[in-house]
Structures are given as structure tokens and as C-alpha cells.
């Protein structure tokens, strides 16, 4: 045997090992992700024979359009507020460093590790009819205090709270790599501190903004628990709508079609991101 074929055999063996190591996760994904997904696709077009009327129903009904539009609007608002809150926080973490940064990152990570459900229930208590927030508003002279729970306000607030950690980490991972000497250089060249921030730091942190917004936008689009538990029943988001279609109307076909539409919308956002940024950069 020549040396060349020996190396080729080795490479082939190495590749085989790689595939063997990948096998469990591939099987897992196939059984628990691809198969159910295929089923959803199947249900959305078979009733009991091939038909597109679930999709037609969705696109011809004003109600569905309103839900889709509402979902986008809520998602956009949540993303915008997450960014507005997270940017100064991430900036402060990167700039101040030390104990402050450690404390803030720990808080962010802890809320990261606490279940969405737990935090959603916490908001139910805080915003509830007999909750502390209404009591505080009442003592400040707002009588009777406004209904907070089961409104668009409550679900938006809670979703911002749930998604801020994702935004902070996305921003932080980009910001901490920005060489602050660049800002100093800008100032030495005559830029006011604000101009230096606007012309140098902000553009260099743009990848973090894009990443964070994409992440939050996609997560928010498919949010189920929080809008269902905290939001107004009259202003459902699309994931909640799917739940209702199944639980209350047993409309598996329509629910499946809605799910496929949601998936397509999400994939479109991903595709736009991939086109301009690259998917491999999403997690920093």
C-alpha cells in the first residue's frame, strides 16, 4: 500500500467517526422534529384529500390578517423597546467593567436561566387586580387604577422583560470587542464625545444591534405562553391563535396551515438575515 492511499483511508475513517458521533443527534432531530414537522405540513394540505382551502381561508379572512399584522406590530414594538433598554445597559457594562459589569451580567444571566413561565406568572402577580403596581398607582392618586392585566400593555411589557437578556448578550458580545481607543482617536481628531459615539462606536456596534433584533424578533413572533396568559384575549398573537384553533375548535387543518405560515414568515426573516449577515454569526 502506498503512503497516499494510507492517508486517504485514515481520512475516510476520520469522516466515518464524525458521522457516528453525529448519528444520535441526527436521529433525535429526525424523530422529534422532522417527522412532526412533516405531519404538520401534511395536515395543512390534507382534509381528507389534498386541498389548499386552509391556506385560502387564512388569506381571505380579515380576522387572520389582523392577527398576523398585530403579531408583527407587537413584535416590532417589543424588539424596539428591548433595544432601547438593552443598549445603554450593555454600553454601561462594557464601559464601566469591574464589579458593576459582573453584577449586571449575573442578573442578566439569572433572568436568562429562570423559566419564561415563572417570570410570566410573576408579572401576573405584579400587574394583577390586587397587585402591588395598581396599589402604588392608586396611592399616587390614580383612582380607580387602570386595568393592567390582560391588555396589550401587560403582554408587551412582559415580553420585553423576557427578551431583554437575549438583546443584552447579543449587544455585549459585539461591544466588548470594540477597541475603545477608536473612540479616543475620534475625540483626539476633534469629535465631541457624542459625535465620537455616533460616528465610531454606534456603527461598530451595529452587528450586535442586528443580531439582537433578529434574535428577539424571531423569538417574539412565535411567543405563546406570555401573550396567552397576560395578553388581551381579543388581540391574540399568531401562536396563541394556533392554540385556540386546536384547543377550542379542533381545527387541526387550519392550525397546521397557520403554523406553516408562521414558519414561513420566520424563515423569511432568517433568510434576510442570512443574505445580509450570515447565519453563523447569529450567536456572536
Amino acid at each position: 500500500m502506498t503512503q497516499g492511499t494510507g492517508i486517504m483511508m485514515q481520512q475516510r475513517a476520520g469522516r466515518r467517526t464524525t458521522w457516528l458521533l453525529l448519528l444520535p443527534v441526527l436521529v433525535f432531530l429526525a424523530v422529534f422534529f422532522l417527522v412532526p414537522l412533516g405531519q404538520v405540513l401534511y395536515f395543512s394540505v390534507m382534509d381528507p384529500t389534498f386541498t389548499l382551502h386552509h391556506y385560502l381561508a387564512f388569506f381571505t379572512d380579515d380576522f387572520y390578517w389582523r392577527v398576523l399584522f398585530g403579531t408583527f406590530r407587537t413584535t416590532a414594538i417589543v424588539t424596539a423597546f428591548s433595544l432601547l433598554l438593552s443598549y445603554p445597559l450593555s454600553y454601561a457594562i462594557v464601559r464601566l467593567g469591574g464589579g458593576f459589569a459582573t453584577a449586571m451580567l449575573l442578573i442578566v444571566a439569572m433572568s436568562f436561566w429562570t423559566s419564561f413561565l415563572v417570570r410570566t406568572f410573576a408579572w401576573m402577580v405584579i400587574l394583577g387586580n390586587n397587585g402591588p403596581l395598581r396599589a402604588i398607582l392608586a396611592t399616587m392618586g390614580w383612582t380607580p387604577p387602570p386595568e393592567l392585566l390582560f391588555t396589550r400593555f401587560s403582554s408587551t411589557l412582559a415580553m420585553v422583560h423576557l427578551l431583554v437578556p437575549f438583546m443584552v448578550l447579543a449587544l455585549y458580545s459585539v461591544m466588548k470587542k470594540i477597541d475603545y481607543t477608536l473612540v479616543r482617536a475620534a475625540i483626539s481628531l476633534g469629535a465631541t464625545p457624542f459625535e465620537a459615539f455616533r460616528r465610531v462606536f454606534l456603527p461598530l456596534s451595529a452587528p450586535g444591534i442586528v443580531n439582537g433584533c433578529t434574535l428577539v424578533f424571531i423569538m417574539c413572533l412565535g411567543f405563546y405562553v406570555t401573550p396567552v396568559l397576560l395578553g388581551s384575549p381579543r388581540e391574540q398573537m399568531i401562536a396563541g391563535l394556533i392554540g385556540t384553533q386546536i384547543e377550542e375548535f379542533l381545527e387541526f387543518g387550519e392550525a397546521s396551515a397557520t403554523a406553516v405560515i408562521l414558519l414561513c414568515v420566520t424563515m423569511t426573516v432568517f433568510a434576510i438575515y442570512n443574505r445580509f449577515v450570515g447565519l453563523d454569526k447569529l450567536w456572536g
Binding site: T181, L182, R184, A185, I187, S188, L189, G190, A196
Partner: peptide
């Protein structure tokens, strides 16, 4: 610093 009109070249070029 931005009003001092002093040119500076940094260690890592910046």
C-alpha cells in the same frame, strides 16, 4: 481633548 487641536497616533493605529 477634542478642542485641543493635537494630533495623535496611537500604538495600534486606531
Amino acid at each position: 481633548p477634542h478642542k485641543r487641536n493635537i494630533g495623535m497616533v496611537f500604538q495600534n493605529y486606531a
